[in-house]
């Protein structure tokens, strides 16, 4: 691949991913990903500053979710580089050649990145508080008593102080997703990734999850959110990134990108979203 050589020199040109304030927390350069012969990401460049809330918009199949999963290394990228807080994800550069990190090192890189899934993926054999405590106790080696206190605070902050002992199956979808957010926050992440967090919810439960996310944004959490909730993107996002066909088509503040889109594809997508909303 011709891109490989260019990105290697990029390392020198972008001191961004080493240290420093005001530098991007997430720095992705020319990220490509294919499943077999199906190219899903065709060279994504994206910077996310500390404290920024970025919403990824676009039709299904545009690669939003795949890109999000690549940041957390749930998918391995085929080309390009992703740095999170200065760490090159998945590899270490030894004398100009990349070496794949060991599974344990990759696990360590993931600790600082919280992820919330479309289908919640709570651990069904653990109670709500068990789910929240699992990471700190098992991964960080926290004391159980301390982890419990912190988990109770987190459950209270997502409005579920009374559901401590409930198993996921006893909670509504919205409650499960809020526990999932608390579980991710328990690891004190620098970055939160949300993969269509409200798509699997009944319409009347969407609001409670979005409220928790708004609160989180207000407190300065860096967030990348794949969503179809236009109102959330407009109200909360600092920037929206519109993706289609594995490339970034357009990006900018919501006022510009949603209300006054420049590209034909963005316009078409937004119009379709509006029509769907009216039908509902």
């Amino acid at each position: 691949m011709s891109t490989d050589t260019t990105t290697n020199t990029d390392t020198a040109e972008h001191p961004a991913h080493t240290t420093g304030d005001g530098q991007p927390l997430v720095h992705a350069v020319n990220v490509t990903k294919a499943f077999g012969s199906n190219e899903v990401l065709k060279g994504i460049d994206m910077d996310v500053r500390k404290g920024e809330v970025v919403c990824l918009l676009g039709p299904s199949g545009s690669g939003k979710t795949t890109f999000l999963r690549c940041i957390n290394q749930l998918e391995t990228i085929n080309g390009g580089r992703i740095w999170v807080d200065g760490d090159l994800m998945g590899y270490v550069d030894k004398g100009g050649r990349l070496h794949r990190l060991h599974d344990k090192q990759i696990a360590a890189q993931r600790r600082d990145i919280g992820m919330v899934f479309q289908r919640f993926n709570l651990f069904p054999h653990l109670t709500a508080i068990g789910n929240v405590m699992e990471g700190p106790v098992q991964v960080k080696g926290a004391k159980k008593a301390a982890a419990r206190t912190r988990a109770l605070e987190l459950l209270a902050s997502v409005g579920l102080a009374d559901k401590e002992r409930a198993y996921p199956a006893q909670l509504s979808g919205g409650q499960q997703q809020r526990v999932a957010i608390a579980r991710a926050l328990a690891m004190d992440p620098k970055l939160m990734l949300f993969d269509e967090p409200t798509s699997a919810l009944d319409p009347e439960l969407v609001g409670e999850v979005l409220d928790v996310m708004k609160e989180l944004a207000k407190r300065g959490m860096t967030m990348i959110v794949v969503t179809h909730e236009m109102s959330f993107a407009r109200d909360v996002a600092d920037r929206v990134v519109f993706m289609d066909g594995g490339v970034v088509v357009e990006q900018g503040p919501p006022s510009q990108c949603i209300d006054n889109p420049q590209h034909q594809r963005t316009k078409r997508f937004l119009q379709r979203m509006r029509q769907e909303k009216q039908e509902v």
């Binding site: 696990a107 651990f123 990471g135 999932a180 991710a184 690891m187």
Partner: peptide
């Protein structure tokens, strides 16, 4: 999704399997 959720909170392969 269970293994993915476990890996997302930084668990190793062995921990994911065991816990």
């Amino acid at each position: 999704g269970q293994a993915e959720a476990a890996e997302a909170i930084g668990m190793s392969g062995g921990q994911t399997m065991r816990r």
